[in-house]
């Protein structure tokens, strides 16, 4: 042990296991070449613009319209998913019903189904002659090729997140607390509001943030159903592709950096939420 300890650098604890240098070296090399250097290349490219040029690109009216749509639709979709996600998690944990196993497995479909397939399937469903679109058209609601279509695609893509974050918390929730509340005269609704909801709230918000972050960058499932009209139904990732097709590399990089910044802020918030979530679970 002393021999090992003597040769171990200060920044790691000694171990009798071999392979630290090899596995760590491989990890850093791979991480650097695949992820870090290419990401740095984008930031470098955007840095080639002067500050005024950069601000000009990321705040031009077409870009602003795209942010409004991307953030707005992602937010609405995440709200739909937090409501129905909590409901679905509740139903899956607390009730028995035929086909439960099937639903349980199917919830992860948006993770497994290629986004382009989801995109054309949702478009076929919600187009005016589609199965669902027909019914909605009678109610005067046009979904496909409008911002509402964007929301539909983003609801699909974000569906598993809230279910999967809330489910384990509900499973671990101690039923005795609910029984205590009931024995003290609380109605079922009161118990839900004052006992269950506070317990699952951090997990539900984590799921909400994950769904929102995923929706913000989503491309494949959205472009088929969106209509893609500039200023109206054009999402930010599409704007990047359009800039690339016009060989405006610096412009594409600038918008890319703006989106990456938004993604990092969200990632930071998700980490905080998860920490809060864990401390809550620990309390029960």
């Amino acid at each position: 042990m002393t021999v090992v300890a003597a040769r171990t650098p200060f920044w790691r604890k000694p171990s009798v296991l071999p392979g630290f240098g090899l596995s760590m070296g491989l990890t850093l090399l791979y991480l650097g070449f695949i992820v870090l250097i290419p990401l740095a290349a984008m930031i470098l490219r955007a840095a080639g613009l002067s500050w005024d040029e950069f601000v000009g690109v990321v705040t031009d009216p077409r870009a602003l319209a795209a942010y409004r749509l991307s953030f707005g639709a992602s937010f609405v979709a995440a709200v739909v998913n937090i409501v129905f996600g909590v409901l679905t998690a509740w139903v899956l944990v607390r009730y028995e019903f035929p086909g439960k196993r099937f639903v349980e497995g199917l919830v992860d479909l948006p993770f497994a189904l290629p986004t382009a397939v989801a995109g054309i399937a949702l478009t076929a469903l919600f187009a005016e002659n589609g199965w669902v679109g027909q019914i909605l058209a009678k109610a005067g609601l046009k979904v496909a090729f409008t911002p509402l279509g964007v929301v539909i695609a983003l609801v699909f893509i974000g569906l598993p997140f809230v279910v999967r974050t809330v489910q384990p918390v509900l499973q671990d929730l101690d039923k005795e607390v609910e029984e205590a509340a009931a024995s003290l005269g609380a109605s079922r609704l009161q118990t839900f509001r004052h006992i269950i909801l506070p317990a699952i709230l951090p997990a539900a918000l984590t799921g909400f943030a994950l769904a929102f972050a995923r929706a913000l960058g989503e491309y494949g499932s959205v472009i088929f159903i969106a209509g893609n009209l500039p200023m109206k139904s054009e999402i930010v990732p599409l704007l990047i592709i359009i800039k690339l097709e016009q060989f405006d590399y610096a412009g594409a990089a600038a918008i890319g950096v703006a989106m990456l910044t938004a993604a990092f802020v969200l990632l930071f918030m998700i980490n905080l939420l998860q920490r809060w979530s864990r401390s809550r679970i620990g309390a029960f």
């Binding site: 984008m42 913000l216 990047i240 969200l266």
Partner: peptide, 13 residues
């Protein structure tokens, strides 16, 4: 946490 479009963009850049 990176948009798929950005994942492609960085290699083009």
């Amino acid at each position: 946490s990176v948009s798929p479009v950005i994942s492609g963009l960085i290699y083009v850049l």
